[in-house]
Structures are given as C-alpha cells and as structure tokens.
C-alpha cells in the first residue's frame, strides 16, 4: 500500500494529491451520481464572486488541437447562493473543499472571503488572480507584482485558513509573482491558469469565442505548465499545486517530478469521467515499480 497522503504547507493535508481544477467541476455536486467524489484528495469549486455573474455571451468555447479555448467569464451563482445551496453536500464530503474566489475589485475579493469564513467546512481558498476572460479583475491582479502584493496581503490578513494563489502563465516571469505570494505568507501557489489563445472560423471570418482571445486548456498546454512549475519550484519554498493539461497518471508523475506537491484536474473532467480513478491506480503502480513508499518522495525529483 502506497502512502498517497499529501501535505500542502502547514495547513492542508490531503488523502491524495489529486484535486479538481476550478471551473471544470461545477460546485462539486454536478457529478455526484457519476463519479465517486471521495476519490479526490479535494475539490476546488468554480470561481465565486460577491454577486452572481451571468458570464459572457455565446460562443464561449471552441475545440482546438489537443485542447480547447474558453471564454466563460466567471459565470457563477454568487457567494450567498453558494452557501445556501451547496453547503449541505460539500460539508459532508470526506475530501477537502477549497473554494475559489474572484472579484472585480479588491473589496469584492475581501467581502466574498468574509462571507465564506462563516462556513466551518471550507478547508481553504484558492484566489483566482489570473482569469483571462473578464474585463475587470481577473488577470490584472495577477500580472503586476505590486498589485498582487497588495491584494494577497489584504486577503491573508482576513483568514487563517489555507490560502493558495492561482497564477497565470501569461506573464513575463511567473517566479516573480510566486515570490510575492510567498512574501505575503500565502500557503501555496497553483499554476497554471489557461494560456491566452484565439481561433478564427475561416468561412465566416469570425472569432470562435466571443472575446476573440480566451483561455487555452487541455493536453496542448501541459508542457507550458511543466516548464512553469519547474522554474517556480526552484525559486520559492512554498508548495506548488500543478494544473495544466493533465489527462493521465503519467502526466501527474511528470508534474510531481517538476516540483508540484499536488495537482488539479481540469479539462480532462470534460472528456474522461474516470480520470481520477485511473490516475490513482497509476500512481500506486508507478510508486510500487519505482520502489517508493510515499508519493511525496517524487516532488521535485527531476534529474537535471
């Protein structure tokens, strides 16, 4: 029996290193009849904002080579409805629930978090400072070190729970931003959010997502994620939760070797509902074959 237990910083212990990625798993309750939610080390919810958001107009998604571009625009039910409607199921999950928060302004992030603090079952937060598809908020908080410094500092002061900052690859050097998160006592960083991408229908000459430029995800971006995790792992001491194009167990091992302590499954949830089960099985087999008893031994062990 391999020990899959994963510790992310001081505050978050997971029974295995596999989480869901925000925006690809609803609020955690959509698939309760199809997937055993208990298989996940944790669930990361869709981004929540202070007020409900309708999201962007159609078309919101397009399929591209080995991936997809989305421009959903943080459509969500808002923090109040989330607490009212989703607490019952989520509070009874044996895995940890991380709530992803977003906002148009710093105040909105803060007010959203304050409301969530009343819910004891929430294990921690992932701050989305990297959404490429909204006009205000989103990536503007995550692209400039001084702005990120301010907002992470403010949110850190509001909670003692696990706090993870989700970073964008659409920056010159992701390490500088991870260092800011570390300086401001974030417990972890997660990376990468989607990569800027666009696609055009050559018949109609129209863009295939409403905002022209959206966020590329899926297997196509996996090497970009591995590169960002690798260089960030060498730059900061806080743990990294790896995201970006994972579709199988071998991908997860690759992320761990590059320096991720845990991973989030995103786009794969759309095309393989058995992904988590297959990944956990692979991790066990891989560790046995490698003579490793504890999965965390793999973290950062790429031989360079």
């Amino acid at each position: 029996m391999i020990d899959l237990t994963t510790q992310i910083g001081l505050k978050l212990q997971l029974k295995n290193p596999v989480l869901t990625a925000s925006g690809t798993f609803g609020y955690g309750d959509e698939l309760a009849d199809l997937i055993d939610l208990n298989r996940f080390g944790g669930i990361v919810t869709k981004s929540l904002t202070l007020h409900p958001r309708a999201g962007n107009p159609s078309p919101r998604i397009t399929e591209t080579t080995a991936g997809m571009i989305n421009s959903i625009g943080l459509a969500n039910i808002g923090v109040d409805a989330f607490i009212e409607q989703k607490s019952e199921l989520l509070s009874h999950l044996p895995g940890k629930v991380i709530v992803n928060i977003a906002g148009r302004t710093e105040d909105e992030y803060a007010d959203t978090l304050k409301k969530l603090e009343s819910q004891e079952w929430i294990a921690g937060y992932e701050m989305n400072v990297s959404c490429p598809n909204v006009r205000e908020g989103g990536i503007e908080f995550g692209a400039k070190p001084e702005i990120l410094n301010h907002i992470v500092g403010r949110i850190r002061d509001l909670t003692n729970r696990f706090l993870m900052i989700k970073l964008s690859p659409n920056v010159t050097d992701i390490r500088v931003l991870a260092e800011v998160c570390q300086k401001r006592s974030a417990d972890a960083v997660s990376m990468i959010n989607t990569v800027y991408g666009a696609a055009i229908d050559i018949k109609t000459r129209k863009p295939l997502v409403n905002t022209v430029i959206g966020g590329l995800s899926g297997p196509a971006i996996k090497p970009i994620a591995v590169a960002n995790i690798y260089k960030t792992h060498r730059a900061v001491d806080i743990p990294i939760v790896g995201i970006g194009g994972i579709s199988c167990g071998a991908d997860v091992v690759e992320f761990l070797l590059a320096g991720a302590s845990a991973v989030e499954l995103g786009t794969v949830n759309f095309f393989n509902l058995n992904a988590v089960a297959e990944i956990l099985e692979f991790l066990e087999e891989y560790c046995v074959a490698q003579g490793i008893g504890v999965v965390t031994e793999l973290v950062g062990k790429v031989k360079v």
Partner: peptide, 25 residues
Amino acid sequence: LMACGLGLCQGCTVKKNSTDAEAGY
C-alpha cells in the same frame, strides 16, 4: 458545441428571453 454535456464547462449557452440585459443564460 459542448465540451462536457454535463453543465461543468458552462460553454453551451442560450440567452434567456428577457428585457433585462442582465438576464443571463
């Protein structure tokens, strides 16, 4: 076009018929 068919991706929208611009999808 659907990425998941399950309400996860929120990609396959149709606009609600309403005079309210914020009516949503």
